[in-house]
Design a binder for these strands. Structure first.
Lengths: 346, 346
DNA sequence: TTTTTCATTTTAAACGTTTAAGCATATTTT
DNA sequence: AAAATATGCTTAAACGTTTAAAATGAAAAA
């Protein structure tokens, strides 16, 4: 790697000061009253030498890097990789570059990512926060460092955030199942204290109650992030073996659903006759399941764009008021909840 | 955002020069012969003030950013997002941060990403190159800038690269179909001049020939990146309507397969009886298709790790010899190619 | 006592930019 | 003709680090 061309080289070539070159290359000729011919000479030299500005040097001087940090649970999860894509594009349009990190839902990893990104002087952060990371975020708030939470949020943390109405969406999902004739609805959720998940559970319970159905403990199964397949399949098995066996499943995310569906598929269970299925999020897999899966769609484009908008707003005014943007969801009805008009299976 | 604590603040606090502080904080006390007590004082002050080094300043001074650029076709494509994850983890272990960009298979976007990343002074690049980006890469080579190609490569470009044996893998796939009793094998590929795709086509044709099957023009369908669904479904429709209608399809990537399978699914075509299916790569969708899809697995972990290893090696020695790492593939046989023992469907 | 050696610390330059302030010289205004 | 203003360019400092080289002072050797 040969030495790069700097502003100094251009200055030498043309026989002027580096300041002059900087003014010209930043189109500040007017303000700096640079002569027309000299400006041309500088530009020509820059082109000829193929000058490329050193953004690191510029950042050091300006204190801004035009870089954003994005922290998700796992970039290899399609939900997050799609969000990443939307944010990447939107950020690029604003002249920003994005650096991405995966927290694996661990507060410790989240902390080191935040710290690594801050040390790299990112101008702002977009974070799908992990459990128990409130304190890290509170510190950011105290420092008035611009950031926006996506997908998740924390009660009592007055940060910017973009997410759906988890209670209502879950309520609607379960209500849909019940309206379709299912009564014994089981739910598979993540084993986490994150409010968005707890809201989904609350929505589930709320819908059962509103329909006069008494929930059973065995109907609510939780899976840990680290041993997803194992826990989900255990949970599904347990429910299917229960005396009060559910006639429908509500999956709280697409990864949970994909894992559960694999088991259900393997067992040859008939959907939607024997078992109704509804899930949050989307997945190619939902389309190919023998009974295409009904799901609650959240617009990832909207989430990504809203997050970037909020972040830009706050970077302009770090002391400004924090906003919560709620993104609408839509229930996409398909075959997996199309219960035939028969009696409940006992 | 209050002013960050710098080495200067520590120096002032302790009453020493910034040089001293820098030596201590970089554990260069020995070489710099710093007194034991002073060193302790510095460390204490750093901890007390919660000092965090400004990596931008360090980079400007050192000329290295500990940052790698990753350019893929589309980070929202699971194949690439998984690669990104593997590379992210491996890079972190080496103390590097990764910035990611999507080229959308366009040489122009690739060029601006490369340029943006270089301006940000990344120490190295990992690139899944787009069509017609040879020149950009040749420039990197000429500058002795460290980079590694993944998934794709260019003939006559002596760069580091990590990829599979596309010819052989495609050959094996088609040969598998034929061994299973399919004879009229159609292929859906990307409409691109990228060698890895052309190799897959060559492997397809080679296997047909080796089995004494004359290929038909209509059996080879191409789809553009930008209008994937449209082109794939056109291609599939055309083949199914042809006089010499194929009895098996070979998809050159998972996105092509997912798109094609949606159509096939919609048409109610019987797989594997009426039509055999084999594809490159993996997908959750393959598991849920009514006949789970046989596919050619490439180990993404291996690709990512090998790429990072090569890159690290070259960053240490930018003038070193370039290496090509070939990653093994494996044919995962499932129901979609399990042709029953019947006569060919006419 | 003078010189040498050693231990500890500081100085200063450098990385590549940006930008306020300054300095000539020319031109206009009075 | 003197004063005021314009024009065109340079100087120098700053951003936060690192690091070679110099400086200081004390201890050891002569």
């Amino acid at each position: 790697m040969e030495k790069k061309v700097s502003i100094k080289d251009i200055a030498k070539q043309v026989g002027v000061s580096t300041a002059l070159v900087s003014y010209v290359l930043n189109n500040k000729e007017k303000e700096a009253r640079v002569g027309r011919e000299v400006a041309e000479k500088v530009r020509r030299a820059a082109r000829k030498l193929n000058y490329q500005p050193n953004l690191i040097a510029r950042s050091l001087q300006s204190g801004r890097t035009q870089t954003l940090g994005l922290i998700v649970a796992d970039i290899s999860n399609p939900f997050f990789s799609y969000i990443a894509r939307v944010i990447e594009d939107a950020a690029n349009q604003h002249g920003y570059t994005v650096i991405i990190g995966s927290s694996d839902e661990q507060a410790s990893k989240s902390a080191s990512l935040i710290s690594a990104f801050l040390n790299r002087q990112v101008d702002g952060l977009i974070i799908a926060p992990a459990e128990k990371s409130e304190k890290q975020l509170q510190n950011l708030l105290n420092d008035h460092f611009p950031f926006v939470l996506i997908d998740r949020y924390f009660e009592g943390l007055s940060s910017n955030s973009v997410h759906i109405d988890n209670y209502q969406s879950a309520y609607d999902a379960v209500d849909h199942l019940i309206k379709k004739g299912y009564r014994r609805v089981g739910m598979i959720t993540y084993d986490t204290a994150l409010p968005h998940m707890k809201e989904r559970v609350r929505g589930y319970l709320g819908a059962l109650k509103a329909n006069g159905i008494r929930g059973r403990r065995v109907w609510l199964q939780k899976a840990g992030f680290a041993r997803l397949d194992h826990d989900v399949q255990n949970g599904v098995r347990e429910m299917l073996a229960a005396k009060e066996r559910p006639d429908a499943f509500f999956f709280a995310t697409n990864s949970l659903a994909v894992s559960g569906l694999k088991y259900i598929y393997g067992k040859g269970i008939r959907v939607p006759e024997e078992l109704g299925i509804i899930s949050f999020d989307e997945s190619d897999a939902f389309d190919f399941f023998y009974a295409p899966v009904t799901y609650i769609r959240q617009s990832i484009e909207d989430i990504g764009k809203a997050a970037l908008d909020l972040l830009m707003k706050q970077m302009k005014n770090p002391a400004g008021k924090k906003e919560q943007t709620i993104i609408a969801t839509k229930l996409i009805e398909r075959k997996s909840t199309a219960r035939p008009e028969t009696k409940n299976i006992k």
